[in-house]
Simulated assay, not measured.
Amino acid sequence: MSIEARLAELGVTLPDAPAPVANYVSFVIADKLVHVSGQISQNAAGVIRGKLGADMSIEDGAEAAKCCAISLLAQLKKACDGDLSKLKRVVKLGGFVNSTPDFIDQPKVINGASDFMVAALGDAGRHARAAVSAASLPLGAAVEIDAIFELV
């Protein structure tokens, strides 16, 4: 089953890849690796803001992380000239969670992105990962995730 078909089964349509908000590029292709810049938690309604441990639940944070994963795939699609069949695997996700100093469940939040990658990509979605806390994130976002993908 194609990635696009799997996404459709999950009820997900990839948005247009978000444009950078500062002086950087959305992705860099080096050999067979696509390095995608950090994607903040946003959906069609805008930036998903909040601070885990204060005004946002783990479940809401995981949903915000899933939104980051969707944006990461949108960037990958752009990098692959619209052809997601060029993807071999997800290599690594780097997750940042806007949280209070005493919040310790960053991995549970970033699971929202990890679980989505596996649901959308099967075994090719399994990856190495980091999940760390941040005192704040750009635009007040709840989550930011960057990624490395390998192409065939």
Rank of each mutant, 00 (worst) to 15 (best):
S2V: 00
E4I: 15
E4Q: 13
E4P: 04
R6C: 08
R6D: 03
A8L: 03
V12N: 03
T13F: 00
P15H: 05
D16V: 12
D16K: 04
A17K: 09
P20S: 02
V21C: 12
A22Q: 01
Y24D: 10
Y24A: 11
Y24I: 13
Y24P: 00
S26M: 07
F27N: 01
V28H: 03
V28F: 11
V34N: 03
V34C: 10
H35L: 12
V36L: 05
V36W: 05
S37L: 01
I40N: 09
A44M: 04
A45K: 15
G46V: 09
V47L: 08
V47N: 08
R49L: 01
G53Q: 05
D55L: 11
D55Q: 00
E59Q: 15
G61W: 07
A62P: 11
A65P: 07
A65E: 05
C67E: 15
C67Q: 15
C67K: 15
C68K: 08
S71A: 15
S71F: 02
L73P: 06
A74P: 09
K77Y: 07
K77I: 01
C80G: 08
C80Y: 02
G82W: 00
G82N: 07
D83K: 09
L84A: 00
S85L: 01
K88I: 00
R89F: 06
V90T: 00
V90N: 00
V91M: 01
F96H: 15
F96A: 14
S99D: 00
S99A: 14
T100E: 06
P101I: 01
D102P: 05
I104Y: 04
V109L: 04
I110N: 10
I110W: 07
N111F: 12
F116R: 06
F116S: 03
M117P: 02
L121T: 00
G122C: 11
A124D: 14
G125E: 03
G125D: 05
H127R: 14
R129L: 03
V132C: 12
V132L: 14
A135Q: 04
A135D: 13
S136W: 15
L137Q: 09
P138A: 14
L139G: 06
L139Q: 13
G140K: 08
A142I: 07
V143L: 10
D146L: 04
E150M: 11
V152I: 13
